[in-house]
Design a protein around this nucleic acid. Structure first.
Lengths: 164, 164
DNA sequence: CCATAATACCTAAGGACTTAGCAATTGCTA
DNA sequence: TAGCAATTGCTAAGTCCTTAGGTATTATGG
C-alpha cells in the first residue's frame, strides 16, 4: 500500500536518518488529497460549463436562501479569497447573465449580487451531480470514519491558523 | 465548536432540507485545512526568501541524495505539475544560482538539474524550521490520531483519483 | 533500417489569483 | 459635528499555473 508520500518519506529517511519527518506523512497527504479532490470535482463542474470558482459563487448565493442576494464582501469571506478576486469572478458571471449586480439601498458603498433566473436554474441543475461526486469520493468511509476525519481536519485547520 | 463549514451546512439544511450534504463536511474541511496549512508553511518559507514552489524543488533535489541531480521530468512527476511549470521554476532558481542545468550524457533530449553549493546550503538551512512548522501543525494529534488521519487521507486520495 | 510515434524540454499565451492603489461612502471619536 | 479612519468595490500589474505548440532526440515496428 506504499504510495507516493511513502516513497518520499523513505528518501528522507535515507538522506537524513536523524530527522523526524513523520509530520510530512500527514501534510503531504493532505495537500495531495485536496489536489485530487479538486481535480475530480472539476470534472463534474465542467459538465455544466462551470469551474470551481463559478460554482462556488452560485452555490453560495443559492444556499443563502431567498432572495438569493448577498454582497461581494460576504462572498469573499465565504470563499476565503480577496474582494478583488470576487470582483473578477462576478465580471465573468455577470457577462454570462448568471448573476446581476445592483446598488445596496442601505449602504452607498455597497453592491448586492443576485442570482438571475438563468443562474438559479444552472446551479440547481449542477448541485445534485456535484453532491453525487462528493458522495462517491467519501463513500468508502464508514459513518464513524467520516465523523472522525472531519473532526481531525478541523483540528489541523485550527492548529494551522494562528499565524497569518 | 461550530466552524465555518458547520455554518455552511446549516444554510444548506435550511434551503435544501431533503439533500444529504454530509459529504461537504469532509470535502469542505479538507480544502480549507489544505489552504490554512499552505498559508502557514508559506510564512516559514518566506523567512528564507523562498516560496512553496522553490522549496519543493530544492527539497526534492536534496532528498534524492548525492549527487543531488535529477531530471525536470522527475521533478514534474514528483510535484504533480506540468513540465512547463518545472521549466519556469528552474528558470527562476537558476537565475538565483540555486540550481544549475547540465546536459544529460545518457540522453540527448534530457537535462539534469543539480543543486549548487548555495542551493544546498539554503535548503539545508530552511529544512529544519520547515519541519518544526509541520510538527507544530500536527502537534495536537496523538500518535494514533496521526496514523489514522494519514490513512484516511490516503483513502480519500485513492477514491478521488479514478477519473481524470 | 527507416518512418512514425513517443519522450524531453522549452517558450508563448491565457486564466485566476494576489497585492497595490484609487474613489466613494460610512463610522467613530475628540 | 468635523475630520480621520475604516469599509466597500473596483482596476492594474505581477505571479504562477495551465494548455498549445515547437524543436530535438530516442524508441519502435513493419
Amino acid at each position: 500500500m506504499a504510495d507516493h508520500v511513502d516513497r518520499i518519506l523513505e528518501q528522507w529517511k535515507a538522506e537524513k536518518p536523524d530527522l523526524d519527518v513523520s509530520p510530512m506523512a500527514i501534510i503531504g497527504r493532505l495537500s495531495r488529497a485536496a489536489l485530487a479532490v479538486d481535480a475530480r470535482l472539476a470534472n463534474t463542474f465542467a459538465r455544466y460549463g462551470l469551474d470551481a470558482s463559478s460554482f462556488d459563487v452560485l452555490a453560495t448565493l443559492l444556499r443563502s436562501g431567498a432572495p438569493y442576494r448577498i454582497s461581494p464582501v460576504e462572498l469573499a469571506r465565504d470563499a476565503m479569497i480577496s474582494t478583488s478576486a470576487v470582483a473578477q469572478r462576478l465580471n465573468k458571471l455577470e457577462a454570462r447573465g448568471l448573476v446581476s449586480r445592483q446598488a445596496n439601498p442601505d449602504d452607498g458603498r455597497g453592491t448586492l449580487v443576485a442570482l438571475t433566473a438563468a443562474g438559479r436554474k444552472l446551479i440547481e441543475t449542477a448541485l445534485l451531480p456535484h453532491l453525487e461526486t462528493e458522495r462517491a469520493i467519501t463513500a468508502s468511509l464508514t459513518v464513524e470514519e467520516k465523523t472522525l476525519l472531519a473532526a481531525l481536519l478541523q483540528r489541523i485547520n485550527d492548529a494551522a491558523r494562528p499565524l497569518k
